[in-house]
Write a protein that binds this DNA or RNA. Sequence first.
DNA 1: GAGCACTGC
Length: 829
Amino acid sequence: MSNNETNVTSNVLEASGMSKKRKRKRSRNKNPTNPDNQGEISSESLPNGQVKQQKTASKDGKIIEGIPGVVGDIPVTQLSENPKLERDTRGQAYDGNKKGHFKKPTFESKKNKSFDNYKSKDNKTVKFFERTNDEDEDYHRPTNMSRSQRADKANELLEIRKTLPIYQHKDEILKYVAENQVVVIIGETGSGKSTQIPQFLISSNKGQIAVTQPRRVAASSLAQRVSEEYGCVLGEEVGYQVRFSNVSNNKLTKLKYLTDGMLLREIMLDNKLNKYSCIVIDEAHERTILTDMILGFLKQLINSGERPDLKVIVMSATLNAELFSQFFQAPILFIEGRTYPVAKYYLTDSSEDIVDTIVRAAVQINLSEQQGDILCFLPGQEEIDTAVNILSTIAPDLPKEAPIIVPLPLYAALSPSQQSKIFETLPKNRRKVILATNIAETSITVSGVRYVIDSGLRKVKVWKHELGLSSLLTTTISQASAKQRAGRAGREAPGKVFRLYSEKIYQSELPKDQESEIMRNDIVLPILTLKKIGVDDLIYWPWLEHPGETAILSALSTLYSLGALDNNGKITSLGYKMAVLPLPPQLSAVLITAMNSGVLKDVIDIVSCISVDNLVLNVTTGDGEMRDEINSKRRNYCPLGCRYGDLIAFKEYFQYFEELNSMGNTEELKSWCSELHFNFKGFKNVLRIRQQLKDYMFGTIRQDDSINRDEKDQQLNNLKSQLVPDYDDITIKKPLDIPNILKSFLKGYITNTAIGMPDRSYRTCTNGQLISIHPSSNLFGKSNLDAIMYIEYVFTSKGYARNVSAIELSWLQDVAPHILGGTKVTIKD
DNA sequence: GAGCACTGC
């Protein structure tokens, strides 16, 4: 069977499984409540639930009849243009009453349609083409061009650069930078701030310039572009540095793009940042934890007076620049951008079922609007899958005069090959309808989009320090985010945004800005980082936004129980090692424990697997049969994992991957991955992370002077005997030392344990909360285990443990005797 | 008995 066939089949299977999905959806639409019922945002308080659903016709008496049984009677057509003008964007063609275009492919009837039935009717089935290019395209590499070719290209690009609005302000910008230590620059999208301002600075700066980006792809592609404009080889005067890839040269590079995480790492090595004369923080408005940390650190450095020569430029896209300006007491420069106008349309009434409304809106736009693709923002995977199913079901029955709709899902848990379908060019008379999560807001840019449909919703993970769990909540987006989503329609030509909420809600209900990451996340790692760079007074450290004492104390408590801090709150030598490892502190503690109990090799493998998101893809394609089939196939590859849980299963899967990999048979490897729904690229990443962890484990031990010499030699020998002989020789198979492997994990996750109760439920060791094994786990359905340990505790419809292992009560006794006595780990002062 | 948004080292 060819790849093409596979894809078409799975598409149809998706379509046939949707009624089940929808039933589930209804139950999930209940409030994602928290056990403590505090500060949560429920779906009922969302804008889409705010206005009572209106089932009657609009003023002009027209409503879309829609697809009976599927979409109900929600009047989507009443879109009014901002500010006051009422406008009906609906064309003539799709008045359901008049022409009967929708031939009642109701949900109920469609579900019974067989594959053949569907196929015969659908001569227009979209063909998907599997990408054949195996190259790793993640990173940019220097190109082979002669010096004169590069100069020609740079001159060519200079003409374009000169047309950018920002180019006119070059002298003014440099003047501000010369006169102030910190400057805040607001640059609208399309202003060219990220490429131009750093280049302006090269001429007036003697040392290196660092430009931070929140994402890796941004860092590497900006460096690529700027090196062309500058006329140099990438990695020489202009370079970049991200995890796994350093295309820069310490002596030659004047301008380096790096991720914010990389810069924070450099800060840990040199807390005066001596090698840089200028730091540019780009995309500061995104407020990631790491940029917030860097900004706080820079303020501390400037206040200390140790780097009066250091220039800092904070670049932000939205108007929240006052925050940065006040924080640094710095002037603000505003640079206008250049994007196409985007007309805004609002719903006069909100709808209760966002999926139905979005389907209707997409169908309507397809019929009434000029060419251009449609990008829809939905909160999550489930809504997207449902919408894709409905659209692909009704697509063949839509009017012939309109383009054929090609629905395409886009979210992080999709495999890279599925994601790349959005970039393929379609034959004429077809229109992409991309149904995406927030991933399309910043991370992935799709060209050809002229229309955006915005549900106004997103999913957000919120951490509760008191409970040690995270909740996944569906909540409204901010105005800033709504603008960002709208902007996606105006990148290449004038566009339109259709907001599935009223203008009143936009104005009065949506917050101006999103809550920043640092306020809704676990800050154990940030606190450890601060301890590492010598900050003792965490409460009065210059936080851009203070995370609050509770969060800090809770993080300190965790670090203390992991052994990273001593009784006085000082960082220990163990803490130093943990801070350097590129892992959450809990996992660092696991690695260090494993080293001492002789299971480092296996634990590194497992930790590397855990570090890759979406390694084991969830099976979303429709019916339960397919899911059961894949699950049982997977079980063949993890006999021990079936008994001991997901961590051991990771090890077994990875072991099999490595065996195939060592034989060099990529095709077989890929088909094994797709058969079991594993992420091939993800496994490749596991290999890279494992190598890095191995390097760090050697490096940290060698550099650590706090350990005496004998101990150091002992540890080195330990490491060598574990790592060197058989690391690259996977033909040597030793039986897994499961008790010691899992006990190492217990050292980092002792608070993430639960005991099996007589009533076959599980209750957490720390505070007796009810917890269930997540359906994605190998141990799902097992209710007779003595005790479990889990890597993550998330609350969705109820409390779930993810990445679960079966453990023995005696291990708990060994690792932490106090936990069974009900004593909580607290800071001793 | 039933399912997780995104990113970084």
